[in-house]
Computed example of a mutant assay.
Amino acid sequence: MSDAPPSSRPILLVEDNPADLDLTRRAFTRSHLLNPILVARDGQEALDLLPRWEDGEPLPLVMLLDLKLPRVHGLEVLRAYRASAVSATLPVVVLTTSDEDADIDAAYRLGANSYILKPVDFDKFIHVANQIELYWCALNRPPRNA
C-alpha cells in the first residue's frame, strides 16, 4: 500500500509489439506525461511483477493491457491481477487490436475498467494516449490504499 503521489506512480504498459510499445512511449512523451512507464513485454512478465506490490512497492496508477500476448494471454493476466488482494482495485485499461465480442465481454466480466481499440494511425493513437493520460493520470482519483 502506498501514499505515493499519483504523478510518481508508474503506468504499467503490458505490450509485446515493439512498434506499439514505441508508439505508446512517443505518444506519452509528446503529451509530457510525468509518470514513469513500467513495461512488461509479455503476460508472464506482467505476472512476475505482482510480488513487487505485495512487498509494498507503490502500485501502478493504471495498467494498459494488450490481450494478444505471448506466454500468458492478457485475459489471464487480468484474472490474476483481480484475484490478488493487492492489485484487485488497480485500474485496467485494455488497449488492444481485438474487436472480438468474446474478448470485450470477457475483459469486462474479469474486471477491466475500460476497453479501447488501438488506432492504427499515429495521430489518432496520440489522441487516445492523451485521453488515457488525461483521465487516468489527471482526473481519476485512485484509492488511497492502492
Score class of each variant (00 low, 15 high):
residue 93 V to M: 06
residue 117 L to C: 08
residue 121 D to M: 01
residue 120 V to A: 10
residue 123 D to R: 04
residue 51 P to D: 07
residue 57 E to A: 09
residue 4 A to I: 09
residue 27 A to F: 11
residue 142 P to D: 01
residue 94 V to L: 02
residue 142 P to Y: 11
residue 34 L to Y: 05
residue 101 D to S: 07
residue 87 S to G: 10
residue 76 E to P: 11
residue 127 H to W: 06
residue 87 S to T: 15
residue 31 S to E: 13
residue 124 K to I: 00
residue 12 L to K: 05
residue 28 F to A: 04
residue 82 R to D: 03
residue 82 R to K: 04
residue 69 L to D: 09
residue 112 A to L: 07
residue 56 G to T: 13
residue 94 V to W: 01
residue 142 P to W: 09
residue 146 A to M: 15
residue 4 A to H: 02
residue 95 L to H: 00
residue 48 D to C: 06
residue 67 L to A: 08
residue 72 V to S: 07
residue 108 Y to L: 06
residue 145 N to A: 13
residue 122 F to D: 09
residue 118 K to N: 03
residue 41 R to S: 09
residue 99 D to N: 15
residue 101 D to M: 06
residue 105 D to R: 15
residue 7 S to L: 05
residue 11 I to R: 03
residue 44 Q to G: 10
residue 129 A to C: 15
residue 90 L to P: 10
residue 57 E to F: 04
residue 11 I to L: 14
residue 55 D to N: 15
residue 70 P to A: 03
residue 75 L to T: 13
residue 60 P to E: 09
residue 48 D to I: 06
residue 71 R to T: 13
residue 87 S to M: 12
residue 85 A to I: 07
residue 71 R to Q: 11
residue 112 A to D: 05
residue 73 H to N: 15
residue 54 E to W: 03
residue 73 H to E: 15
residue 54 E to H: 12
residue 57 E to D: 11
residue 97 T to C: 00
residue 14 V to S: 05
residue 108 Y to D: 09
residue 130 N to M: 06
residue 141 R to E: 11
residue 102 A to K: 09
residue 98 S to K: 02
residue 77 V to D: 12
residue 144 R to W: 12
residue 65 L to T: 04
residue 90 L to E: 01
residue 128 V to Y: 00
residue 37 I to Q: 08
residue 146 A to T: 14
residue 94 V to H: 01
residue 102 A to F: 03
residue 65 L to K: 01
residue 13 L to C: 08
residue 112 A to K: 01
residue 115 Y to D: 05
residue 57 E to C: 00
residue 83 A to M: 00
residue 129 A to Y: 03
residue 86 V to I: 10
